[in-house]
Structures are given as C-alpha cells and as structure tokens.
C-alpha cells in the first residue's frame, strides 16, 4: 500500500497552539454525587495521552466533557483560546468540528456508504443542502478517498457501513475524525469492542495518522498494556480523581494497585 505518504494539513493549521487546559472540572449527574471531582489537567498540543482506570471512574465523562457531549457541572476547559464549558449553539458546533472523536461502538450510520460516513466528518463545515443532496465539494471527496486509503479501506468506499467488520468500522471512525481536520482527537475506549490483534492495529493507526499530522490524542483505555505501548503520557484515574500522571515508564505496579486494586472495583 502506497498510502503511507502523509496528507499535509492545510497551511492555516500550522502554528496553532493545541494545548488543552482543564481546570477544576466537576461533573455530578445527580446532585451531591460527583463522578468527576475537581479534575485539573494540562495536555500539550502533541502526542498521545492515555487515561486509564476502572470502569465507572469518570474517564468517559471526562472525555465527553471536553467536546460537551456531557455538560460539566463546574470548571473550565480551555482550548484554542476559548472556554469550551461556556460555549453554546453555533460557537459550540464550531468548536466541536475542531475536535474529532472515535467511539467504542464506532457509531457509524450503518445504512450510509463508507465514504459518506467519512464525509459526515465535514457536516460542521458544509451547508446542509450540500450534505442532503450529497453534493460535497470535490476537495472534500478527494480527501475522504485519501483518508480511506490511509486507513486501508480505499477499496470499500462505496459499500454500506453495515457490511464491515468491527475493525473495519473503527477504521472508518478514525477516517471520519481525521476528516474534520481536527486540532484534537478524543478516543473513548476505541478498542474495547475489538479482538486483541485488531486492537493493536487500531491503536497503531490512531498513533500514526494523528502523529504525522501533529494532532494531540486523548484516549480512554482500560487496557494498560496498550496504554504503555502507544501513549506518551499516562493519566490514571480512580473514583473521579487523577491519581497518577506521568510517562508510561514511571507507571509501576503500586500505581496500578492504587488505580485498579484496593476496593475500587467493589463499588
């Protein structure tokens, strides 16, 4: 496959400060029972940050607060000179299109073709009538084909998404996120529904395609081995708080015991 040549990001993206700063973020779905407790985190504008921790510990809530699929109860999320926590309506949509997301269950529109699923990554940019009539701009369509090549699915572009395997679907999900030309990629348990071999391939793909574009990635992942292998930085969470933060090599068994062990899983 000759698709390894990186697709250069548009020129105007160069030099943007992609640092994400989270300050005192709290989320309580029910009053008095916070899932996230006063979390602060600064993510540099490059590399992969893995958030590990047992399920129900607020990882997913944290990542969904960043693009406001979940509304935080309190705190600030600073990105591209704006506080995402305060955005609404149009401003929020314009922020969201700068942030790509990869989901655990892929979340493709199954009855649309593969390429149209990739092109839905442009819905924040194109007028609705264009999307409705499938009159996407030639430049967008060409990019979608190139991204499908880059994730190894160029030949399946016109197939319906429900004919793909799980791993293939996740590749489409990654292409969709890249289609947004994002300044940040969020991945919420991208490998949890996949077998071990495919999981590695998917993580490799995310790291490579984001890395060559210099897009920072925040990934929720409960598989510690995958986190160690692909992340530049590991954040360990337990009971809604950050209990470890550092490079993978510093992550020791005592930390893991603190994150996963103890009575944490009994809750």
């Amino acid at each position: 496959m000759d698709a390894s040549a990186p697709i250069k990001p548009p020129v105007d993206d160069a030099g943007v400060d992609r640092t994400l700063i989270i300050r005192s973020l709290t989320k309580a779905y029910r009053a008095g029972q916070p899932v996230l407790k006063n979390v602060s985190l600064k993510v540099e504008g490059r590399g992969m940050t893995a958030i590990i921790g047992p399920s129900g510990t607020g990882k997913s809530t944290l990542i969904r607060c960043i693009n406001r699929l979940v509304d935080p109860t309190a705190g600030e999320i600073l990105f591209l000179d704006q506080d995402i926590a305060k955005l609404n309506g149009r401003a929020l949509r314009q922020m969201r299109r700068r942030i790509g997301m990869v989901f655990q269950e892929y979340n493709l529109v199954e009855r649309l073709s593969v390429i149209e699923n990739v092109l839905t990554g442009r819905l924040g940019y194109v007028p609705v009538w264009r999307a409705w009539l499938r009159r996407f701009k030639a430049r967008d369509i060409e990019r979608a084909f190139q991204l499908l090549d880059a994730v190894g699915l160029g030949a399946l572009a016109t197939q319906r998404a429900d004919q793909l395997s799980g791993g293939q679907r996740q590749r489409v999900g990654i292409a969709r996120a890249l289609m947004q030309e994002p300044d940040l990629i969020l991945a919420d348990e991208p490998t949890s529904s996949l077998d071990p071999k495919t999981s590695v391939e998917i993580m490799e793909l995310i790291a490579k395609r984001a890395g060559e574009r210099d897009i920072p990635v925040i990934v929720n992942i409960h598989n510690v081995a995958l986190a160690r292998r692909f992340a530049d930085r590991v954040v360990g969470m337990s009971k809604g708080e950050i209990v470890f933060d550092g490079p993978p090599r510093d992550l020791e068994d005592s930390h893991l015991l603190q994150i996963y062990g103890g009575e944490g899983w009994l809750e």
Partner: peptide
C-alpha cells in the same frame, strides 16, 4: 498515491 494525481476516476456516490 501523490497529491497531484487526479481523483483517480473514483466516484464517491454512484
């Protein structure tokens, strides 16, 4: 594939 190549006659929406 290089950037300068034409859209390679691929049709997104037959």
């Amino acid at each position: 594939m290089s950037m300068s190549a034409p859209a390679a006659k691929r049709v997104a929406f037959p």
